[in-house]
Design a protein around this nucleic acid. Sequence first.
DNA 1: CCCCAGGCGTCCA
DNA 2: TGGACGCATGGG
Length: 219
Amino acid sequence: MRPEDLIISTASMLEKYYGYLNWWPGGSRDEILIGAILTQNTSWNNVEKSLSELRKRGMLDIRVIAETSDQVLSDLIRSSGFYRIKAARLVSVCRSIAAAGGFESLQKMTTWDAEKFLLALKGIGEETAESILCYILDREVFVVDKYTLRIFSRIGLGNITQRNGIRSLVEMTIKGNGSLKNFHATLVQLGKEHCRSRPDCDGCPLGRICECFQSVTSP
DNA sequence: CCCCAGGCGTCCA
DNA sequence: TGGACGCATGGG
């Protein structure tokens, strides 16, 4: 089967099983940015505690974070882990984006220019940049994360390229409004909920993928 | 006690 | 270009 067909059928099976998932539902763009940085190598559960602390204080706002000290912020986001380095990066990223004119300004850039701008900031790497482009700026960008690489490798797509090749292949293959968002969301859902909670793979929408996935200990 | 989570930057070959 | 390592809390 061609790689493109494998991608299409996988996306279609996942969509049929999970439907349309609302990722980052109802959150403001500022909240999504903050969450995207806090969740780096960290479970979402831990991030939500930090987001609640910030919400209570009206700090889910990049212009407020930009005026906050690293020290004060680090105490509020402790539950997210790596809190000292994340506080410093969060403050500096918010300052840079605010100084550039906020998301309104980024929205006017081409996707390529916006990505270049984001990648230049300390604390924003490839996956975080993709998340911002996809979920905040609403661009046709596929987010490649650890689950994606692991699952793709198990269905026989891992040898094609590294992450950049996978990303462009998926972006050329999956078309349509929001399709890339949902493909990424369903891949993560499969990875973290189904395969972990049901090691016997019973009822997995992608039996073969699930079976291979749970037998792999590291990407 | 162990392992790992929706990574990133730095250093080193 | 690519691998090792530090960063740190909380859940299983």
